[in-house]
Every structure is written in C-alpha cells, then in structure tokens.
C-alpha cells in the first residue's frame, strides 16, 4: 500500500459534441442571395443605414430589420486590416495573409475577408478592392463564394470617407 506512485498530472477526455446551427431568418435570406452571387443588405428602419449582412435587428436601436433588401456592389474600401502570421487549426489559409475589414460600396457596416493578388507589403487603409468570385459551379451558401478581395486599381479612398467605420 505504501508504494509511491507518480502523481496523475494529465487525464485526456476527448469531448465531442455535435451541434446543428440555424442561420436564422435574415441570414438565410442573405445566404440564398450569396448562392446566386448577389450581396444583399438591409436598412435599419430608424436611421436608414444599410447593414451587411443584416442579422435581423439593428443592434444600435434594438428594432427588427424587416424591410426590402438592398443589393450591394462587390467593390469596397479597406477600412483597416491586420497581417496574420499565426497558424490556427480552424483557418485554412496560407500564412501570412492580410485579414481586411471591407466597407462595401452602398453598405454602412464592414465585413471581414482576406486580401489576395497583392503583396502584404502593399496593403493599406483606404485601398480600393473588388471581389474575386470562385467559378459559378463552386458556389454554395457561403461568403466563401468570394475567394478573396483584390486591389481594384482605383485611387485610395480618403480617410474621412471611412474613418467612422473603424
């Protein structure tokens, strides 16, 4: 009984749980449009600002967003970005990559995406970008239908035009 054993320091208990997520009513509408290559936003009924994507309510005013969708351009402006050099098991991208916040033309909220066809030394705030879509036969109900954004070649947007979105 008195025989000393090594203390147990690590016990591995794999936890596997399956979840079935619902996109929700408004995200479903948005995803069905993305499946067709369309980017749909919706207006807040209080201040008319266009949410992309709409999540069913305006977080600022706490009111449902139910009006007609607004179709947006697939061009926009990088309002801010970071260059990521940290591997993550959940992200399937080659390092390093630029994670960008894009303000699409016609939208009043930004989305996170990736920058492609551009050296990471050239990425900057205010840079104008356009979406590069995957081939149509690969489209699914996902924003990954846009492979990445690439520089559009237009002149940079002035800081004042997007600074309130950072």
């Amino acid at each position: 009984m008195s025989e000393e054993k090594e203390p147990v320091e690590v016990l591995r208990t794999p936890v596997e749980l399956d979840y079935t997520y619902s996109a929700g009513v408004s995200a479903s509408r948005f995803l069905r449009a993305v499946e067709q290559g369309k980017l749909l936003g919706q207006r807040c009924p209080v201040d008319g600002r266009v949410y992309f994507p709409s999540r069913g309510s305006c977080p600022q005013h706490g009111v449902p967003i139910e009006g007609e969708p607004v179709e947006l351009s697939d061009r926009g402006t990088i309002v801010t970005f970071s260059v990521n050099r940290v591997p993550s098991e959940n992200i399937d991208l080659e390092l390093p990559y630029a994670a960008i916040q894009v303000l699409l033309d016609g939208a009043d909220t930004t989305l996170f995406h990736v920058l492609g066809e551009c050296s990471i030394d050239d990425v900057r705030m205010g840079m104008r970008v356009e979406a590069v879509w995957r081939p149509r036969d690969e489209w699914t109900i996902s924003m990954q239908n846009i492979r990445y954004f690439k520089p559009s070649g237009e002149p940079d947007a002035p800081f004042e035009s997007y600074q309130e979105h950072i």
């Binding site: 997520y21 996109a23 801010t80 993550s88 991208l93 994670a99 996170f112 109900i141 996902s142």
Partner: peptide, 29 residues
Amino acid sequence: LSIPMPFSVAVVAGAGGFFAPLVRGYMRR
C-alpha cells in the same frame, strides 16, 4: 475562440486577429 461556425468566413485568428485592426486604427488616428 475561433470555433468554425457555419455561414461565415473564418479569417480572424484568436483575439489578436480581432484587435490588431483596431490597434492599426488607433495608430492612424
């Protein structure tokens, strides 16, 4: 912090990935 959720594109790696663009915003401002 970065569980792959359906319907969204995963580009933000951990908290640093989220806050780095804000730090850049502060530096610019």
